[in-house]
């Protein structure tokens, strides 16, 4: 019976395929508000990922079309606040056919799962992705305990 597991697998693959096709057909489905376009996550700001690598936390934020002057990062203990704005990049002398990207101002705040050493935080911006490396403060770091 377990040799037929591939059938189940195939069924799920077909469902994924259908979902992709549907997404392609209705690209705007689930997007909140068309004009002006707002961010996906219930207008609370750009999408973020947070991962915990033991001695530091890593936060990635989607900020397409923003330069570092547009972004503002504040940190206090384990409270992090990212704000920014995207200016309209409509070129001069062009007629507009379609505007989906629009301009936006956002503030998003997080309670991080650990206290962070604010002196050693590094922020880099590349290809529209902001990456914050947040080293945990000494007390919050995991410790190896030797067995006597």
């Amino acid at each position: 019976m377990w040799t037929r597991w591939s059938d189940v697998d195939r069924m799920f693959n077909a469902m994924d395929l259908l979902q992709n096709r549907m997404n392609r057909m209705f690209p705007d489905y689930g997007r909140i508000g068309r004009f002006p376009v707002t961010w996906d996550v219930a207008q609370s700001g750009p999408k973020t990922n947070l991962s915990d690598a033991g001695d530091h936390l890593e936060l990635k934020v989607e900020v397409p079309g923003m330069v570092k002057e547009d972004l503002n990062i504040r940190l206090q203990g384990n409270y992090l606040e990212i704000s920014g704005s995207r200016k309209s990049d409509t070129p001069e002398g062009y007629t507009v056919h379609r505007v989906e990207r629009g301009m936006t101002t956002f503030t998003r705040s997080f309670t991080l799962p650990a206290d962070v050493d604010s002196e050693k935080v590094e922020a880099t911006l590349s290809n529209g992705l902001l990456t914050l490396v947040l080293p945990k403060s000494e007390t919050a770091k995991p410790k190896q305990i030797a067995i006597n």
Binding site: N13, N23, P64, P91, T95, V96, H97, R98, N127
Partner: peptide, 28 residues
């Protein structure tokens, strides 16, 4: 089947006498 989901990027489209200009958000 593709293993990663396909999404449509947001775009702005502008036109003037000389060209059509398309901006698409593709972060990362």
């Amino acid at each position: 089947t593709s293993e990663i989901p396909a999404v449509a990027p947001l775009v702005d489209i502008y036109e003037n006498d000389d060209e059509i200009l398309l901006h698409a958000d593709m972060p990362g």
